[in-house]
Design a protein around this nucleic acid. Structure first.
Lengths: 202, 202
DNA sequence: GACTGCCAAGCAAACGCTTGTATGGTAAAG
DNA sequence: CTTTACCATACAAGCGTTTGCTTGGCAGTC
């Protein structure tokens, strides 16, 4: 009697994780189809054929990267939604979580930003649509609750507001570089100020 | 003695424009390197080799698309900046112009969103960096002027605020579809309300 | 401690296919 | 008779992937 075991391909060895990290970084930089298995292999210090000892295909690599990324994100979002005391605190926590994620795994975020929309239409990537919808539901739930409670302005379609916020936050990964004038925290703070109070002076 | 003439490759025939439109649409959907010249040719009803009667290379096609797009945008932005009566009206006009552009040429916007960051690092695309910087200067100028005039909140780095706004607006092209619940105008209106007054009720 | 079997990791070379591009020809229009 | 737009065919390079093989190390058994 054994615990549930992973398939051989899904067992995580250190080498696998290392190669996935390289692949994520390259694909985030150049795009999925502009990144060749030879690029990835060379960066890993092996030949392209040797990649197939670790992964079934190039597509399997990006699937594993995206699935892992979205599962981790959804876990955090679920926790935030479950523990939020009020809608405003909930939205703030979701936004902060997104900025932290950008700081923690920029490659996965960038790759998701660039490739998810197209890949979602491809067979084998149905999970992208499903998990994106769950995420959307969490955000819109907080926005709606805030409108009902009277802490957020009643006008404005929550679905549209969500997308504005989502895109502004996630797009940060394209230009934010740590070590410069701003930290992840200061970015988060400035965004929260903008989204809560707006641009206009009182 | 003649006026400045375009090179043969840059002369615009109707057929050229048609093919460029097809290329822009396909590349916006699938990405530059995932779109083959055979895809473009098939959609145009010709063979791939025949494309080279109109264009020097695949790269020349995307250069022409992007250059044309940015030139038109920059012309409009320059006009707005020159005619703006005050910073708030200036920012509003810039935002409205962006939403109108999304409605008018969604393919070019989408293509720019997806490919510009990578292409900007490639030889032959230096104009992308140059024109992006000019656009950034126009926006940040309005934001700074608003802070100085006291109509915008003084806290917040204008360069960061600009990027938040820019990304939220342009990313709209990825999910907005005309004919649904929202028009370009209603999107523009809702975004302006959010960016000026924020989420919080008074 | 030597021997055996096994396995993860990678190499070297090739496979069939797709890619962007070049070339010579053709048919219609002016 | 030149120009325009296109076809038909080809080509070299690069693509993802497969194959057969080598290597080093880690059990377990004698």
């Amino acid at each position: 009697m054994s615990t549930v075991t992973k398939t051989k391909q899904e067992q995580s060895s250190e080498r696998r994780e290392e190669i996935l990290g390289i692949a994520a970084r390259l694909i985030a930089q150049r795009g999925y189809s502009a990144t060749t298995v030879r690029d990835i292999a060379e960066e890993a210090g092996i030949l392209s054929g040797s990649l197939y000892h670790h992964f079934a295909s190039k597509e399997a690599m990006i699937q594993e990267i995206l699935h892992g990324f979205m599962d981790r994100l959804l876990t955090r979002y679920d926790e935030i939604a479950a523990n939020a005391t009020d809608p405003r605190a909930g939205i703030d926590a979701l936004i902060e979580c997104a900025f932290e994620t950008i700081g923690r795994e920029p490659s996965a975020v960038g790759l998701y930003q660039n490739e998810a929309a197209f890949l979602a239409t491809q067979p084998g990537f149905e999970f992208l649509v499903a998990e994106s919808e769950r995420i959307e539901t969490i955000w819109i739930g907080q926005l709606r609750a805030g409108q009902s409670a009277g802490v957020f302005r009643p006008e404005g379609d929550p679905a549209v507001t969500y997308r504005f916020i989502r895109d502004a936050v996630w797009s940060t990964v394209r230009w934010y570089r740590p070590g410069g004038r701003h930290t992840v925290e200061s970015m988060s703070t400035q965004f929260l100020a903008l989204v809560h109070s707006g641009l206009d002076a009182d």
